[in-house]
């Protein structure tokens, strides 16, 4: 399966999903209002990827800002992965990176961690 790469722009994040390593990276800012349109190809790719059971997936979030509309999309993403872990013998780990001073981003990670049954690591960025 092909990798998925979408270059970051002013209001869209960089998407870098590696089909071989199972490493899925989302980074930057996301405040496009039509988040459904932007995230649809991402969901499509993931749905295809999750057809194969037993994968070992690491999802790395390195977001500096996202709007509430994006927040819904991320929850949908986590739901897909939670379902996969339950039904398809997959292992999913979420690494949620935040700048140490960014209390809001840390809290957002904590809230997702409470809302979905996935292994969530909250990791302060060192640099």
């Amino acid at each position: 399966m092909e990798n998925l790469f979408i270059k970051a722009d002013t209001f869209i994040p960089e998407i870098n999903f590696n089909a071989q390593s199972g490493e899925l990276n989302i980074s930057g800012e996301s405040y496009h209002e039509y988040t459904l349109e932007f995230y649809q190809p991402v969901f499509n790719w993931l749905a295809e990827y999750l057809k194969t059971p037993g994968r070992n997936i690491v999802l790395n979030f390195r977001m500096s800002y996202y709007n509430t509309s994006t927040s819904r999309r991320f929850l949908e993403l986590f739901d897909m992965l939670e379902e996969y872990q339950k039904q398809q013998k997959g292992t999913v780990t979420v690494n949620w990176y935040y700048k140490p001073e960014d209390v809001d981003m840390k809290e957002s990670g904590e809230e997702y961690a409470d809302d979905v049954a996935l292994t969530f690591n909250l990791i302060p960025l060192t640099k």
Binding site: E33, Y34, N67, T68, S69, S71, R72, L75
Partner: peptide
Amino acid sequence: RRQPVREGSVGG
């Protein structure tokens, strides 16, 4: 956030 968006609303 768990609820579907309000009818006629495109955003969150």
